[in-house]
Amino acid sequence: MGNTDLQGRSVIELGAGTGLLGIVATLLGAHVTLTDRETALEFLKSNVQANLPPDLQTRAAVKELTWGRNLGNFSPGKFDFILGADIIYLEDTFVDLLQTLEHLCSERTVILLSCRIRYERDQNFLEMLKGRFSVHEVYYDPSKDVRIFKAQRSVRKEEF
C-alpha cells in the first residue's frame, strides 16, 4: 500500500464503532465523517471528543448512516477515501453496503476494507464487490488472519 497522504483529504468511515480509524485519519490531516447506526452514535461522539485534541475536533464529524437508507444525506462522490474495518459479517447487509459504497464513490474514490475471511459468506461479499468495483488485496497479516482490500470503481469503456 505504501504511504498514503491524508492531509486535506475527505474520508468517511463506515460502521465506525469506536471510531479508531476515523480518529487516526483525522490525526493524519484528513477531514473525516465517522458513521454508524443511530444506537452507536453517542458512544462514537464521546470517543471522538475524548481522543482528538479540541483544535482537530472540527475536522471530525459524526453522522448517522444505516447502509442503504437516507443516502441523500451524503453527497455522491464527495469522499477521497472510504474506510471500513470488520464491517463484512452480516449477510443481510451486503446489498445495502454495496449500494452505499456505490452512492459514496466517484471514479477517484479509494475504498479500503479490512477484514478476516471467516466464512463463505465473507468471500461471497468480496465476489459481489468485484462485480461492481476493481478489487485487490493489498495487505495480509497471517498472524492475525487480517486482510486489507482496496477497491475502486471499475472503469468501463463505452461501446461505440
Rank of each mutant, 00 (worst) to 15 (best):
N3W: 03
T4V: 14
D5C: 04
D5P: 04
L6A: 02
Q7E: 15
Q7Y: 09
G8D: 14
G8M: 06
S10R: 07
V11Q: 08
I12S: 10
E13M: 13
G15Y: 08
G19T: 05
L20R: 14
L21E: 05
L21K: 00
G22C: 04
I23T: 03
V24N: 11
A25M: 07
L28I: 13
G29S: 06
G29T: 03
H31K: 15
T33I: 11
L34C: 10
D36E: 02
R37P: 05
A40K: 09
E42N: 12
E42M: 07
F43K: 12
L44P: 01
S46F: 13
A50P: 06
A50W: 03
A50S: 14
N51L: 06
N51A: 08
P53V: 15
P54F: 03
D55I: 13
Q57H: 08
Q57K: 00
T58L: 12
T58G: 15
A60T: 08
A61W: 07
A61Y: 10
K63P: 07
K63F: 05
E64F: 08
L65D: 00
L65Q: 02
W67K: 06
G68Q: 04
R69H: 13
G72E: 15
G72P: 01
G77A: 01
K78V: 07
D80Y: 06
D80V: 08
F81V: 00
L83Q: 00
G84L: 06
A85R: 02
D86H: 00
I87Q: 07
Y89C: 01
L90F: 13
E91H: 12
D92F: 01
D92L: 00
D92E: 09
F94H: 15
V95D: 15
L98H: 01
L98K: 07
L101M: 07
L101Q: 00
C105E: 01
C105N: 01
S106E: 10
R108Y: 12
L112Q: 09
S114M: 03
C115I: 14
R116S: 14
I117L: 14
E120C: 12
R121C: 08
D122V: 11
Q123T: 13
Q123A: 14
N124Q: 15
M128Q: 12
L129R: 07
K130V: 04
G131H: 06
R132G: 12
